[in-house]
């Protein structure tokens, strides 16, 4: 059980990458909006798309953690 918990924790570390990625993307989007406020709509669309795609890695990590906890009972 202890090892499973450690494994789940390691899987959840994937959230770091997604956090950094979404942070960078959002920062760039804010820069872009301040540079070109009239392009706000399309920038928001791309930000949403990029956020959703980079978030996927964190979600996969979360999924793996769940799988480890709930489906690998010794």
């Amino acid at each position: 059980m202890n090892l499973l918990a450690i494994g789940a924790g390691i899987a959840a570390i994937s959230g770091i990458g997604a956090g950094i990625g979404i942070g960078i993307a959002t920062g760039k989007a804010v820069e872009a909006v301040s540079r070109q406020p009239e392009a706000r709509g399309s920038i928001m669309q791309f930000l949403l798309l990029g956020g959703a795609l980079s978030e996927a890695t964190a979600i996969y990590g979360l999924l793996v953690a769940f799988l480890i906890i709930f489906f690998m009972k010794p």
């Binding site: 959703a52 978030e55 996927a56 979600i59 979360l62």
Partner: peptide, 13 residues
């Protein structure tokens, strides 16, 4: 897979 996992992961989290 990513559509389903994203929605499920966010809501269950």
């Amino acid at each position: 897979l990513s559509l389903a996992a994203r929605l499920f992961g966010n809501i269950i989290a």
